[in-house]
Computed example of a mutant assay.
Amino acid sequence: MGSIELVCPAGSPAMLKAAVEAGADSVYCGLRDETNARNFPGLNFSPEELAQAATWAHARGRKLLVAVNTFARAGQSARWRASVDAAATSGADAVILADLGLLAYARERWPDLRLHLSVQAAAGSPEAVRFYAQAYGVRRIVLPRVLSVQEVAALVRETEAETEAFVFGGLCVMAEGRCALSSYAARRSPNLCGVCSPPEAVSYTEEDEGLVSRLGGFALDQFAPGEKAGYPTLCKGRFEARGLLSYLFEDPVSLNAMSLLAGLKAAGVTAVKIEGRQRGKAYVARVAGAFRQAIDALDSGADPEAFAPLLTDLAEGGRETAGAYRKLWR
């Protein structure tokens, strides 16, 4: 069994170079518009930068993957098709798609372009994977973050497509690809506009009770002096219900599945993926470097778990989870 491919995020050309230099095998990025799910100001690539990035990565034996992973809106699908065209002409190694119409367009317009299925499509069963592979020629499935290691292994056994699993970074409570919470408060949703909790809708104010975070004017959390304050998203807000103050939807924690690398490799996973295109080059350099060491250790027969503590301070709220991979609930 070969080594697991390490796929790292790039929100900018500088971040892409940092990821590759730290040990990424592949880097994924998006264009500077709402066709990708990290549409934040100051992030992402122009078509020209995308072509330059592909050339730079290929010269170093690395791959460039382009995310066009939001859902096209009625009457505006030309914008999404243009992003697929830009990815194809840039020399990218694959495009990551979720929208069925875009998958059909990409297969017909660019028959030699390698297609990966975004986590946003939520293909979590062998039947779903086979459908995308047979109907659209999808070569790789980015697995939804709701499967245990045992479920991943069962899926791999019953399908022929490659699989890619998230192992580090932000977690989201949404049913993959169908989040609407952000749009209620901020009028923009991640799956249509490419941004969850847009920065212009976020605010922090010092009040008598402490630091208060808001989204679209709605108070989502309150922090005591010295308490770590996370980025305000509705799914990770702290609310009072029936007299109990708690995180009703999801605790503000980060995924770190480095301790499960051996299990994921044994399950047949092709690639592991780092989340965080919005986090910057220092972040990706540290995470890519730690996972590079862990994967190399695994390949040599050593225990990769020893490298997990290298990243604890990067976790949201200072807390980590193995997510659904080590599922104890149903």
Score class of each variant (00 low, 15 high):
residue 109 R to S: 15
residue 110 W to D: 00
residue 110 W to C: 01
residue 110 W to Q: 03
residue 111 P to V: 11
residue 112 D to Y: 06
residue 112 D to F: 01
residue 113 L to V: 03
residue 115 L to S: 15
residue 115 L to W: 05
residue 115 L to Y: 08
residue 116 H to G: 12
residue 116 H to T: 05
residue 116 H to Y: 15
residue 116 H to R: 15
residue 116 H to A: 10
residue 117 L to P: 09
residue 117 L to Y: 07
residue 119 V to F: 03
residue 119 V to G: 12
residue 119 V to C: 07
residue 120 Q to M: 11
residue 120 Q to A: 13
residue 120 Q to Y: 04
residue 121 A to Q: 12
residue 121 A to Y: 03
residue 122 A to I: 01
residue 122 A to Y: 09
residue 122 A to E: 02
residue 123 A to H: 07
residue 124 G to S: 12
residue 124 G to W: 09
residue 125 S to P: 04
residue 126 P to H: 11
residue 126 P to L: 04
residue 127 E to K: 13
residue 127 E to F: 08
residue 127 E to S: 14
residue 128 A to N: 08
residue 129 V to N: 00
residue 129 V to H: 05
residue 129 V to P: 04
residue 130 R to H: 03
residue 130 R to Q: 08
residue 130 R to T: 06
residue 131 F to N: 04
residue 131 F to A: 10
residue 131 F to H: 09
residue 131 F to R: 03
residue 132 Y to L: 14
residue 132 Y to R: 14
residue 133 A to P: 10
residue 134 Q to W: 02
residue 135 A to M: 07
residue 136 Y to E: 09
residue 136 Y to A: 10
residue 137 G to M: 06
residue 138 V to Q: 07
residue 138 V to E: 10
residue 138 V to K: 03
residue 138 V to N: 08
residue 140 R to D: 01
residue 143 L to A: 04
residue 144 P to A: 04
residue 144 P to Q: 02
residue 145 R to T: 13
residue 145 R to S: 13
residue 145 R to F: 11
residue 145 R to C: 12
residue 146 V to C: 13
residue 146 V to A: 13
residue 146 V to K: 11
residue 147 L to N: 10
residue 148 S to G: 08
residue 149 V to K: 01
residue 149 V to Y: 01
residue 149 V to G: 00
residue 149 V to R: 01
residue 149 V to W: 01
residue 149 V to D: 00
residue 150 Q to M: 03
residue 151 E to A: 13
residue 151 E to H: 03
residue 151 E to M: 05
residue 153 A to L: 03
residue 153 A to F: 06
residue 153 A to R: 13
residue 153 A to W: 05
residue 153 A to N: 06
residue 153 A to T: 08
residue 154 A to R: 12
residue 155 L to M: 14
residue 155 L to G: 15
residue 156 V to R: 15
residue 156 V to M: 09
residue 156 V to I: 15
residue 159 T to A: 12
residue 159 T to W: 12
residue 160 E to Y: 05
residue 160 E to S: 14
residue 161 A to C: 09
residue 162 E to C: 00
residue 162 E to G: 02
residue 162 E to L: 04
residue 163 T to E: 01
residue 163 T to M: 00
residue 163 T to V: 09
residue 165 A to T: 06
residue 165 A to P: 00
residue 166 F to K: 07
residue 167 V to D: 01
residue 167 V to W: 03
residue 168 F to Q: 11
residue 169 G to W: 01
residue 169 G to N: 06
residue 169 G to M: 03
residue 169 G to Y: 04
residue 169 G to L: 02
residue 169 G to H: 05
residue 170 G to Q: 14
residue 170 G to L: 14
residue 170 G to C: 14
residue 171 L to R: 07
residue 172 C to L: 06
residue 173 V to N: 08
residue 175 A to H: 05
residue 177 G to A: 04
residue 177 G to D: 04
residue 177 G to W: 02
residue 179 C to G: 15
residue 179 C to H: 13
residue 180 A to N: 03
residue 180 A to K: 06
residue 181 L to M: 14
residue 182 S to T: 10
residue 182 S to V: 11
residue 182 S to I: 08
residue 183 S to A: 15
residue 184 Y to H: 15
residue 184 Y to S: 11
residue 184 Y to A: 10
residue 184 Y to C: 11
residue 186 A to H: 02
residue 186 A to T: 05
residue 187 R to D: 12
residue 187 R to N: 12
residue 188 R to L: 12
residue 189 S to Q: 02
residue 189 S to T: 11
